[in-house]
């Protein structure tokens, strides 16, 4: 009797798996996109591409809470049998990491590319100061990252996102390159020592500034400007714009083709579509991009028309990134 049950069980199991697999068979044409760009911004673009080309988009979106351990690690883990065609990243160092590991394939585009044409940069988000205008009159607004160490503002009235993750990590690496290791490490050590809040993400910095729990904080333009657009009592400031200052870090989006991708032609079509001029504008209008090169794209954020951009060497930043993250981990995670 038990034997009969097991046989039945096995049959049902096999049929079930077979049915599931049949259901899983994907229609062509398809393109698989992994993107760390917020779903809120990326989804309409992907939908428009699907509508225009008839190529079905299967997308995976990252979440801020995964702390950069999401899609990039998935791409690395899937490298033996890639599933994604395209990686559309909200910054550039993680893309460079994939390039270094040989997970990207060259695709020449008209955009700003790395030397091997493994990825293309486009658009940009700037690392800006968000200031609560209720608690801080304009003449007391900060204008430099160095202000995080100034005694004029109490430490717990300022916030930065954890520099181990996301664009804050990219920013940390850029500061190490611009200031030198000792200065940069001292910046984070001192900030922590004087009680600057090191919070869970850039959106948390924004929320704290909106609620008036901090006077100012460091975040991305998309976060900061969204608060302004919602009518909150905040202002957005490009830091370090004075003569001789290091400038504001602008972090472009990057798009890359995955080596061994299952649908390379569809992937290329998507890359071309994404790099079209309309898309950058659309993303700027949606509030994702605010900067392109030194041009400020949108007027809604009350920012100047031009920004002095911090100069960075992507390859050098990448080389130093892991070391910097571990050093910052030793300083901050205690």
């Amino acid at each position: 009797m038990i034997r009969v049950d097991i046989t039945r069980l096995l049959r049902v199991g096999i049929l079930f798996v077979a049915a599931w697999n049949l259901a899983a068979c994907k229609e062509n044409p398809t393109v698989v996109i992994y993107t760390s760009v917020d779903r809120h911004f990326a989804e309409p673009i992907l939908q428009a591409f699907e509508d225009e080309t008839g190529i079905k988009v299967e997308a995976l979106y990252d979440v801020e809470a995964a702390k950069t351990t999401g899609l990039v690690n998935k791409l690395i883990a899937e490298s033996d049998r890639p599933r994604a065609d395209v990686f559309w990243n909200g910054e550039f160092l993680q893309t460079q990491l994939l390039a270094q590991r040989g997970l990207l394939t060259a695709y020449a585009t008209n955009g700003q590319q790395d030397q091997q044409h493994l990825w293309t940069a486009f658009g940009g988000r700037a690392r800006v100061l968000i200031v609560n205008t209720t608690t801080l009159p304009q003449d007391q607004w900060p204008d430099s990252l160095a202000d995080f160490l100034e005694d004029r503002w109490p430490g717990d009235q300022m916030a930065i996102a954890h520099p181990l993750f996301g664009t804050s990590a990219t920013h940390a690496a850029a500061l190490y390159a611009a200031w030198g290791d000792a200065h940069a490490a001292n910046f984070y050590r001192s900030a922590q020592a004087r009680g600057v809040r090191i919070v869970d993400g850039n959106s948390v910095v924004r929320d704290l500034a909106v609620k008036g729990e901090i006077m100012f904080g460091l975040t991305d333009t998309d976060d900061a400007c969204s608060a302004l657009e919602n009518g909150e009592e905040v202002a957005v400031v490009f830091p370090d714009q004075s003569d001789g200052a290091i400038g504001t870090l602008v972090i472009p989006n990057t798009v890359a083709m995955i080596a061994g991708a299952p649908h390379p032609e569809n992937g290329k079509q998507f890359v071309d579509y994404l790099l079209g001029e309309n898309i950058a504008l659309e993303l700027a209008e949606a509030g994702w991009f605010h900067v392109n090169g030194t041009d400020v794209l949108t007027a809604s954020c009350n920012l100047p028309d031009q920004v002095t951009v911090m100069q960075v060497d992507t390859a050098a930043l990448y080389e130093a990134l892991a070391r910097i993250k571990l050093e910052l981990r030793d300083i901050l995670v205690r």
Binding site: K67, T69, L97, F165, L321, L326
Partner: peptide, 9 residues
């Protein structure tokens, strides 16, 4: 652990 994973992947 996340910091380690994020640093070195």
């Amino acid at each position: 652990i996340f910091a380690e994973f994020s640093a070195n992947h």
